[in-house]
């Protein structure tokens, strides 16, 4: 893949708010043409602050951003006609109808699709003449999506696109985002839903406290996390009676009361060794739990890790 194939490039990006709060503290990542890239993080992780820099809404306090090869802040005229943006909150005049809002936005968008077609894509055709203030939260999100898609953008920024949607609406939005990706659109989305990032993103970055804590394909990020085994120490046994852990591929262990927790990157070897030991000793491992690494694990681990190292 050549450099030209990266449509979003952020390098050592920083954003500091008045008052000195550092929301984004030097992040670097790239998104390739035609991929869905997710910024995953808890509230306050710096996702929206980052996306606003990518969209060219604010000037970075350090580092650089390039979108489609241009600086989105300084060369906005070159970038804006080719991107679509969906903010976290709508931002539509309450007293305009859905159709009026779309028509207004179409007048400001290069190569805009017809209003009717745009509304049909997101299933709002029947709500055309309804004032925005009467829409449900989910309908407002869909209107926002329709506007973001009006100019058939090459790059689409979606800031928490499914927050406030019901399960059905969420599934439909995912479907639409995949369709867009398959048609060649690059999508950068932020989310705090793990399953959204896991199911939708080709690659993702987990943000925590203004930093990227992990980045890569979902399986890569997950693979960097250990799997877990937990069980209750059988009666009459001490932790020292367990077989040597390191040869089983177990990286660390902790004891809470009588519960033993093991962490390993070789789940099958570790579990087999442990179960064989239990069979030899003729004991039952009560409360046995074996959990392979997951994105959730990775996410929680990152949040916890950085708290303890602070």
């Amino acid at each position: 893949m050549t450099d030209d194939d990266y449509v979003i490039e952020a390098e050592d990006l920083r954003r500091t708010y008045a008052g000195g709060f550092e929301a984004v503290t030097g992040i670097t990542f790239r998104a390739a043409r035609g991929e869905i890239f997710a910024l995953l993080g808890t509230n306050g992780a710096g996702k929206t602050s980052t996306v606003e820099l990518l969209e060219g809404l604010a000037r970075p306090d350090g580092g650089s951003v390039r979108v489609l090869g241009h600086d989105p802040y300084r060369e906005r005229a070159a970038v804006r006609p080719r991107i679509g943006v969906m903010l976290q909150e709508g931002g539509f005049p309450a007293e305009l109808t859905v159709a009026e809002t779309t028509r207004m936005w179409a007048g400001c968008t290069s190569g805009a699709r017809p209003v009717g077609e745009a509304l049909e894509t997101v299933g709002l055709t029947r709500r055309s003449d309804v004032r925005v203030k009467q829409l449900s939260g989910g309908e407002k999100r869909r209107l926002d999506l329709a506007l973001a898609l009006l100019g058939r953008p090459e790059v689409l920024f979606l800031d928490e696109p499914t927050t406030g949607l019901d399960a059905e609406g969420r599934r439909e939005t995912w479907e639409l985002v995949r369709t867009l990706r398959d048609a060649g659109t690059t999508v950068l989305l932020t989310t705090h839903y793990l399953e959204e990032a896991e199911g939708l993103a080709d690659r993702l970055a987990i943000m925590h406290e203004g930093r990227i804590a992990a980045e890569g394909r979902v399986d890569e990020v997950v693979a960097a996390q250990p799997s877990h085994i937990s069980f209750e120490l059988p009666e009459g046994f001490l932790a020292g009676d367990l077989p040597p852990l390191a040869p089983l591929g177990i990286r660390s262990h902790e004891t809470v009361g009588r519960t033993i927790r093991l962490r390993t990157f070789e789940l099958q070897r570790a579990a087999t060794g442990l179960l064989l030991w239990a069979q030899e000793q003729r004991v039952e491992l009560r409360g046995l739990g074996v959990r392979s690494a997951s994105l959730e694990e990775a996410f929680l681990h990152i949040a916890k890790d950085q708290e303890t190292t602070r």
Partner: peptide
């Protein structure tokens, strides 16, 4: 629906003018 209306990205397009943009906003 989304299959019937593919929304492929387009890289060539007529760019809006300042006048057209302000007219659209003023109308709203």
């Amino acid at each position: 629906d989304t299959v019937r209306h593919p929304i492929a990205a387009q890289s060539t397009r007529t760019v809006t003018t300042a006048g057209a943009r302000m007219t659209a906003l003023a109308r709203a």
